[in-house]
Computed example of a mutant assay.
Amino acid sequence: MQPIIDVHIHFDQYTLKEQQGIMKEMEHYQIHSLISVSTNLSSAVENLALYQKDERIKLAFGYHPEQPLPTDEELADLIQFMDKNHQAMVAIGEVGLPYYTNVKSLEGYLALLEEFFKLAVKWNKPVALHAIYEDAPIVINLLEKYSIQKAHFHWFKGDTKTIQQMVENGYFISFTPDLAYEHEIQKIAATYPLSLTMVETDGPWPFEGPFQGQKTHPKMIHETIRYLAKIKSTHVDEVYRQLYNNTILFYSIF
């Protein structure tokens, strides 16, 4: 094992006992840090409290798109919180568009995403994105509109044309443990440059295959890296080194 960073985890959604267990095991499994993304204001508050207890928890504040839009008051409160604590966060996230939720119109979600992109520009922060399949090109257009280069599409799925555009723009993607058993994800991994790749768990989201029945843990990333090395026909040590350096530089973690 070599040092790893989980670039996308909902650490606030684990129980206190689970959080404590993971934190105790981080050194053993060479887990350098976890980027805990937020889903709303209460999630952001919980993540901030986790960071204040242990700075290996890195912060991303945002509003997950797979939920009803916030009211004007809720959004104002979230932005006020982010403004007060933006120096503590490494990114804005999780933000994006609601692919899985049946919504009549994307108009409100696009307006919300633009607000977060404006903040990303204002504070010079990367964005951690929930944008897959046909939503991805829409988000790419917005990224280009605001000249945002530090974009991270987490657990990405999409077509070849979109992937090519993302590579050309220098956007990053990250792979979860489902790389071990999902052919669609393996195909993306085979073509996406290692220089634009990171790894995540999206925990506590559960996985199948060799991880069936296991509570999602950042240590699973080691297995993801081994599968990625096989897919890329690259020595596993080089994959560890590349992914770690990618993450340190992208998220400015030192």
Rank of each mutant, 00 (worst) to 15 (best):
I4C: 10
E238P: 11
Q13F: 08
T15P: 11
E144N: 07
I57E: 06
H130E: 02
A49H: 13
P210C: 04
F153E: 01
T216Q: 05
K215D: 02
Q13Y: 07
F254N: 15
A76Y: 08
K84R: 14
R56V: 10
G62Y: 00
T160I: 09
Y227R: 09
H217A: 01
I221Y: 04
N40W: 09
N102R: 14
P177T: 07
M198Q: 05
Y14P: 02
S252H: 15
G96E: 00
I253T: 14
Q149N: 12
A151W: 11
A111D: 13
N141P: 00
Y14E: 02
D202K: 01
E94S: 13
N47L: 09
P98M: 11
I9W: 03
Y51T: 11
K157H: 09
L119Y: 07
H217E: 01
P137H: 09
M23R: 15
L243S: 11
F156C: 07
L34V: 10
D178M: 03
E115Y: 00
P206A: 02
K53I: 08
Y51G: 09
L16R: 15
P68Q: 10
N85P: 02
Q149L: 11
Y109N: 13
K122L: 14
K150W: 05
Q52I: 09
D77P: 01
G213Y: 03
Q149K: 14
S38A: 15
L34C: 06
Q242T: 15
H217N: 10
G213C: 01
L194G: 06
E144G: 01
D54F: 11
N85T: 04
V139C: 09
L50P: 03
R241G: 11
N246A: 13
G203Y: 04
Y146C: 06
A180S: 14
A111K: 10
S147N: 12
P98R: 11
S33F: 05
V121Q: 12
K125I: 06
H64W: 08
F116V: 08
E168M: 09
E18N: 06
L228D: 04
L106I: 11
Y14R: 03
M166P: 05
G108I: 00
G93V: 10
S252D: 15
I5G: 04
V37P: 02
I221P: 02
Q149W: 07
S174E: 06
L50W: 03
Y29R: 03
H64C: 05
E223W: 11
P218A: 12
M82L: 12
E25A: 15
V139Q: 08
F175P: 02
Y100N: 05
I57C: 08
Y146E: 06
T101F: 05
T162H: 07
E144W: 01
Q212H: 11
G209N: 12
D12H: 15
L249W: 11
V121D: 09
L34I: 15
P206F: 02
P65I: 00
L129D: 04
Y99R: 13
Q164K: 14
T176F: 03
A190W: 04
Q67A: 13
K230L: 13
Q87L: 12
I248F: 14
A190V: 05
E73I: 12
S43A: 12
F254G: 14
M166F: 07
F207G: 09
H28T: 14
